[in-house]
Design a protein around this nucleic acid. Sequence first.
DNA 1: ATATTTATGTACTATTTAGTACAAAAAGGA
DNA 2: TCCTTTTTGTACTAAATAGTACATAAATAT
Lengths: 208, 208
Amino acid sequence: MYQLVYNSRMKTLKQQRGRPREFNEHEVLSAAMNYFWVHGYENSSLDALLKVMSIKKSSFYATFKSKKELFKKVLDFYREYQISFLQSIKEAEGPKRAMLSLLEHTFNEFQNSGNVRGCLLMNSGRECYGRYEDISHQVEISFNYLLHLFTSYIEEAQKRGEIVNTKEARFIASRYVNTLNGLVVTIRVGASEDVIDDIVKSAKEILE
Amino acid sequence: MYQLVYNSRMKTLKQQRGRPREFNEHEVLSAAMNYFWVHGYENSSLDALLKVMSIKKSSFYATFKSKKELFKKVLDFYREYQISFLQSIKEAEGPKRAMLSLLEHTFNEFQNSGNVRGCLLMNSGRECYGRYEDISHQVEISFNYLLHLFTSYIEEAQKRGEIVNTKEARFIASRYVNTLNGLVVTIRVGASEDVIDDIVKSAKEILE
DNA sequence: ATATTTATGTACTATTTAGTACAAAAAGGA
DNA sequence: TCCTTTTTGTACTAAATAGTACATAAATAT
C-alpha cells in the first residue's frame, strides 16, 4: 500500500540532444525513497542506493549532485506522495477516514511484520535534527504543512459532525499527530501488543 | 539536571597486581553516556568517544571490549540512573510528581535550548530496531521494566487519590509514555511552541 | 560523415571507520 | 634486584565511505 513503484518507462516525447537516459527519474527516486524509508539517511550508503536505483555512480552524480541533494528530493517526493494518498482517501471516504487510515496502516504493519517504518518525514526530522540544518528546515516546513492539512481535515469533519466541535481543530490535529509519532517509537522500543492496542484506541478517541 | 558527572577518583582500596588504572570507570561511562545521548549510537565515532572519555584506544578495548559492548553498558548505566532519579522524586514528592517532572524537564529543555535529547533508551530502541538484535532486546527489557515502574507509580497515585482510579493503571502508563515519546519526535520535527504546549497539556490530562 | 552533446562504465582518491599489534611504563611479588 | 602482571601510548590495518576523473557510447545537428 505504501510501496510506490513505477514500472513504465515514460520517456520524454521530444528526444534531447545527446545520449538518452537509460533510467526513469521517478522510478529511481521511488526506489531511493523506499530504501531511505527503511534505513534512514545516514545508514543508507551510496553503494546500496545505487544498487536499488539500478544506476551507476556517474549517472547518479550527473542527475542528483550528491547524496544529500537526492535525499532532499526524496523528502519532497515523499510529501507529495503522502498528500495525494490522504487526499484520495479523503475524497472517497471522508476526512476522518483518511486520518484513521494512517493509524490503521501503522497498526497493520506492526501486526503483520512486527516492524514499522513510520513517516519518512518524522523519521528524518528526528535523525537530522541539529545535524543537517537544511534537511531539518525542509522537514519543519513539510511537517507544518501536514499539520495544517490535518487541521483542515478535522474542521471539515467537525462540520460533517464526524468529530465534536467543542475542541479546537488545531489541537486535535496536534494530539493526533503526536500520538502517531509516539506510536512508532513505542512499537520500535518493544511494547507488547495490548499496550500498542490501547495506544491506537487512544488515538481514535482523539478523533471523536 | 540530567547531566551526570563524576569528579571523584574513588580508587579501589586494595591495589591490584599490575600498573594501576589512570581513569575511573564510572566517570568515563558517564562521559560516554552523555555523548551517546546527544549523538546516538551510530553517529558516535570511537575517536569522539575516546576524546570525551579522556582515555586511549588500548585502555578502551582492554576495559570495554568494543564500541557495542560499551553502548550496552551505557544503556544499563542510564537505566539505573533514570530509575534512581525517579525514585528520589517519588519518595520526596510522590509518584505523580515524579512522572510530571519528566514531562516538565523535556518541556524546559525545549524552551531553553530549542533542543531535546529525549530518553536514551527510547532513542536507542528506535535507532537500533531491526539492525542490532542484542541492543533492541536489551532496550525492550528496560522499556518494559520502566513501563512496569510507571504502572506501579500510577497505582500508588490512585490509592493516594492523585489520579482517578476509573481507568486501568497499565493503560494510563502506556498513554503517558507514548505521549512523551511522541513529544520528543514532534519537537524535533519542528512543531511550534503552542503545539508543543498543548501536547504537554494533554500528557498532564492523562495523569488526572 | 563528422562534430557536438549528453549519458554511462570503470578506475581511482582521500577520509573516516572500528579494531590490532606491540613496545614501554608502572605497579607488586620473590 | 629482577620477574610478572596489568595499563598505556603510538603506529598500523583493512574495510567502507562519499565523491572525481576520464575514456567511451549513443544520440542529434550540420
